[in-house]
């Protein structure tokens, strides 16, 4: 019985050791116009254009948010910016986007997650100690410990993303 409890506690620690936070893949696989993260971009003739070769039409800022399970083995959601970036270029009648900046940060609602997970951690540690002892309360404690593990592993964590950039229009070159 003691061996089983020790194994359970060991598995718990190992499982939680793998535990991380929210993870997302950010991409835009089907863009209609070139979107560069630097200040350089190609024109249709493959010339590299720098800041003096295009007009900055408009700057834009977009915000996204998402939730994912904070566990490495769970699938990581993909955030596809394609449509919104295409819309920005179309609305401004631009030829592309330069200086794309992406920033990621916490969702303020993570404070609720933080609270629930913090309490779950204490229930897990305290409950595991009881399970490892000769206490008669094991049957009562086991579901609580199991519940705290599930909570810690599968309670979603939020993230917020901001995408900034500048829509540009290529200058016509004199021949």
């Amino acid at each position: 019985m003691r061996f089983r409890s020790a194994t359970f506690a060991l598995l718990t620690v190992m499982t939680l050791g793998c535990y991380t936070g929210a993870e997302f893949t950010l991409g835009a696989p089907s863009l209609e116009k070139p979107v560069s993260m630097s200040q350089f971009v190609h024109d249709p003739e493959l010339n590299v254009l720098g800041p003096g070769d295009y007009d900055e039409v408009n700057g834009f800022v977009m915000s996204f948010s998402g939730w994912s399970f904070g566990w490495p083995l769970s699938p990581h959601p993909e955030k596809d910016f394609t449509e919104r970036l295409n819309d920005v270029v179309r609305q401004n009648d631009g030829d592309g986007i330069v200086n794309l900046r992406i920033s990621a940060g916490n969702n303020p609602l993570n404070s609720v997650t933080m609270f629930i997970k913090g309490v779950s951690w204490f229930v897990l540690v305290g409950g595991s100690l009881v399970l490892l002892s000769y206490s008669p309360d094991k049957a009562e404690i086991a579901p609580l410990v199991a519940g705290s593990i599930v909570t810690i592993l599968f309670l979603p964590t939020g993230a917020e993303f901001t995408v900034k950039g500048t829509v540009v229009r290529f200058r016509k070159k004199d021949k």
Binding site: A28, S30, P34, S36, S38, F40, S103, A104, N106, N107
Partner: peptide
Amino acid sequence: GCVTSRNSLVIDASRPVYFGNMAKTL
């Protein structure tokens, strides 16, 4: 929770760095 930091990715490269599928785009 009101204290939320942000980490930005700024690429100061001297060549184009395309987000997404550049081949299809160009």
